[in-house]
Simulated scan of single mutants.
Amino acid sequence: MIPNDGDVRAFIDQIESPVRKRDAETLLQLMGRVTGEEPRMWGPTIVGFGEYHYVYASGREGDAGAAGFSPRKAAMTVYLPDGTAKYEDELGSLGDHTTGVVCLYIKNLERVDLAVLERVVAKSYATASASGFGQVGADGGE
């Protein structure tokens, strides 16, 4: 995925769902604070912070945000590049959510413990930002 010069503020402002828009504003603040990075658009619908380079065993490679989110219709998607399994214990006390390999799906941030979410995002960002993360052998959800 390639970061682009899309306007993050314009993207957030056009979100129709009041809950997704509110949650996007919350995540902009939370991820900005945790990463110390400015948000950038990655593709048309992902807001990312920082970046890392990945290389899969298949030879596929690219760049992605080291932390990020996307306000999808069904739920807010929070990306954890090092995988959700690593945070199983912490996510047990997060509140109402579901998970995929690298995605955390939250329908309403008011139903989760934001302190837990902040700790998980901070740890995942630190891992993804570390030298050597994403190299051959990391499955990255593939």
Rank of each mutant, 00 (worst) to 15 (best):
P81A: 14
H53R: 15
P81F: 13
L30E: 03
E110I: 01
A67F: 07
G68Y: 07
G50Y: 02
E51S: 15
D13H: 10
L30Q: 05
D13G: 07
L80M: 07
V136H: 05
V116M: 05
S124L: 02
G140Q: 11
A66K: 00
E16A: 15
H53C: 05
Y125G: 01
S58R: 03
E51T: 12
E38N: 13
S93G: 15
L94D: 02
E90W: 02
V78T: 03
D23Q: 04
F69K: 01
Y125S: 02
T127F: 00
I12R: 00
V102I: 14
G140W: 11
L114E: 09
G137H: 03
G59T: 10
G32V: 11
G132F: 09
K21N: 09
Y52Q: 06
V116D: 02
V136D: 08
G95E: 05
A24R: 01
E90A: 15
R20W: 02
G92V: 10
E51Q: 14
E25P: 01
P81I: 14
L104Q: 07
Y105L: 13
T84H: 08
A67W: 06
E142M: 13
E25S: 11
A75D: 07
L104H: 09
V19M: 04
G65V: 09
V55W: 00
T77G: 10
G32N: 13
R20I: 01
G92M: 10
K86R: 14
A64S: 12
E37L: 08
V8K: 04
R22Q: 12
A67T: 04
S124Y: 01
E61H: 12
V19E: 12
T84C: 15
T84G: 07
E37F: 11
A75H: 12
A66G: 04
L117Y: 03
K107H: 08
V34S: 08
A24H: 05
D7V: 13
R9P: 00
F69T: 00
A75I: 02
E37A: 14
L117C: 04
V136T: 12
A74V: 09
R40Q: 13
E118W: 04
N108P: 13
S131Q: 09
A138L: 04
R60Q: 15
A122G: 13
L91Q: 05
Y54K: 07
G6N: 04
G48C: 12
G132P: 03
I46G: 01
M1T: 14
T127K: 10
T127D: 03
T84D: 09
A85E: 15
G137S: 07
D89Y: 08
M41W: 01
G62R: 08
T45C: 03
S58L: 04
K86F: 06
R119D: 13
G32W: 11
I12C: 08
P18S: 09
F133C: 03
